[in-house]
Simulated scan of single mutants.
Amino acid sequence: MQIDFHHGVTYVVARLAGFDAGDADIIAHSAQYVDDATNKGEIWFDNGMLYERIASAHKMLDYNNMQMLSNHRVWLPFHFLPGNSNEAKPESPPSLDAGSFAQRCVCRPNSAPAKELMRSVIERQARSYALYRLGIAAHVFVDTWAHQGFVGFESELNIARNLKADNDHHHEQSFADKALALFGINWDKTVQGLVGAVLPLGHGSVLSYPDRPYLKWSYENASGATVLRDNPADFAEAAAELFQWFCRYRDYPVHGEQVLDKLYPLPPQWGKLVQSLSDITDEDPDVRHVHWMDMARDGTFGFHEAVDYLESGVGSWKEMALGTEDDINDNEDDKLPLPPGFHKSHWKLFHDGLQAHRFYVLHEMLPDYGILSS
């Protein structure tokens, strides 16, 4: 999914679930920032302190950059959560061969690991970074719909051929030209399969098709089966399930574990949200995002709020936390003064949440399914 869903839709869903504007902003910003936190390394301060951050993404849209698509410690916990073959959590971790391991790592919508991830965030919400981790988990959770059928490391399971879009004639007409510019070769069924074989990580061989809410499309998977995808329906289901988890998060401090299986009625504005997933069809995700921000301001969903997302620069989480727009990384020889509000800054709490999320997924949750990737 892209910024229109990870930030725009997530913000609207959080508000409809009862979060106030400030908390919804943190949740939605964190959900999108998962795709933008591409730097890792130590930040050194001149009082001797340091803060180490991890990356939750590479610039995956740069599909011709093979080097940046290699870190499955990024893709698996943050973008392609293993679906355990759509099976429930086992009583004890199974012993998996290579084929079974890969199959169980294929991302599946609303899988047992995805639900367990959301429960863990709810149960651990006393942490200072809890809302940030909720946004991070929300990103991973909804991506199980968009990224279903693909795996977050190099695998032949990710090979796809005969890509077709049913309701995007503009993209169909220009796709070959874009592929020619990107790969330097003409794009047809045979070549697409070759590219998939060279770039078998995630959904690289189907480009951004899984991530655009309005698209209906199909492809031939590695087994030769035709897979039909209906993004509007999938994204609407993802939003509805996310709404349930947001409601449970809010109710848990008062009512405890009994809310973890509770079903909440969708609000009256829900039909407009679902319709917008199909109606906003611009190929540019930033343009689609503007539509969602406009609806947040104009009262479409029952509130009038000027909310936006700033990845970098003056006023961004990073600039406010570190006091500089410079790209600071491993700066032991050029230390920064420690800003007075750093410890409670959005940027630090987000990165605390990233580390907590990755540790939980790779070291606590997935090993119980027999999946080791740490």
Rank of each mutant, 00 (worst) to 15 (best):
G8E: 06
G8W: 04
V9M: 00
V9A: 13
T10I: 11
Y11N: 12
V12C: 11
V12F: 07
A14F: 06
A14E: 10
R15M: 12
G18V: 04
A24G: 08
S30D: 04
D35F: 06
K40L: 11
D46S: 13
G48W: 01
Y51A: 00
Y51D: 10
Q67E: 15
L69W: 09
E91A: 12
G99P: 09
S100V: 03
F101N: 07
F101S: 04
Q103F: 01
C105G: 02
R108L: 07
P109Q: 04
S111N: 09
R119W: 08
S120F: 08
Q125E: 00
A126E: 14
V140R: 10
D143Q: 09
W145G: 02
F150S: 02
A160Q: 08
N162Q: 15
K164E: 15
A165N: 05
D166F: 15
D168Y: 09
H169I: 13
S174C: 10
F175C: 04
D177Y: 11
D188T: 02
L201G: 00
V206E: 00
L207A: 12
D211I: 02
S218L: 08
Y219M: 05
Y219F: 15
N221W: 09
A222Y: 14
G224N: 04
G224D: 00
V227Y: 05
L228M: 13
R229H: 00
P232T: 01
D234G: 13
R248H: 06
R248S: 09
Y249Q: 02
Y249E: 01
P253I: 00
V254H: 09
Q258R: 14
L260V: 03
L260H: 03
D261A: 10
K262F: 12
K262V: 10
Q269D: 07
W270R: 02
K272E: 14
D284P: 06
V287N: 05
R288Q: 03
T300H: 04
F301C: 03
F301A: 07
H304N: 15
V307S: 11
E311K: 15
S312R: 13
V314Q: 15
V314T: 09
V314S: 14
G315Y: 09
E319M: 07
D327R: 12
N329K: 14
D330A: 04
E332R: 12
E332P: 02
D334S: 15
L336K: 12
H346A: 15
K348I: 07
G353M: 02
A356W: 10
Y360C: 03
L362M: 11
Y369G: 05
I371L: 15
I371V: 06
I371P: 11
L372D: 13
